[in-house]
Amino acid sequence: MKLSTQKISKISALLTLVLILGIIENYFPPIIPLFPTLKLGLSNVIITCSIVIAGLFPTFIIVILKCFVLSLFTGNLSSLMYSLPAGILSLLISFLLLKTGLFSFPAVSAASAGIHNSVQIFVACVVMQSAVPLLYLPYLISLGMLTGVFTGFICFYLLKKLPDKFGGFKSRFNTEEGKAMKGKK
């Protein structure tokens, strides 16, 4: 696929936001001390938004670059083998769910967070050559869903408030607010 300049700049702007949120989040204390790897996933807000704003392929690039650069920033390259497959699969899942148009953002976000966490556990199983990490599956899926609903709400309200020219709901879809905006003009 050929990338236009507009798309490249869109990707880089979104990627910058993702990376900044990811780094800030890295300095947060863990929400639950038992699972220090469990994070709110604030950068996923931007990733879910960018599926709507930029489309699947640019978001795919953003996810891959995010995994590489964040693992460099946090100084933990081995986390790449967990984050890369999980990120790609949850991106595809959330894209397909959004494509159906039936589900709202918190649900899509929860689903992709659940998928993200379970993929990481399966990778841990493969890496450690054991079934033991599977015991964490219920905790990580349910916690992931809670954080997913939270980020989904942020994502929804972010897109709702986004001005016309940045490709929020108002310009993209024929919503009540969109119509009201056009009426004012």
Partner: peptide, 24 residues
């Protein structure tokens, strides 16, 4: 602009969400 896309930009909830929550 299709009718389909309206579901996720109108409200943060949708009836179909229940399917996802139940599955998980």
């Amino acid at each position: 602009m299709t009718k389909k896309e309206k579901n996720f930009c109108k409200k943060p909830f949708s009836v179909w969400d229940i399917v996802i929550y139940i599955v998980f």
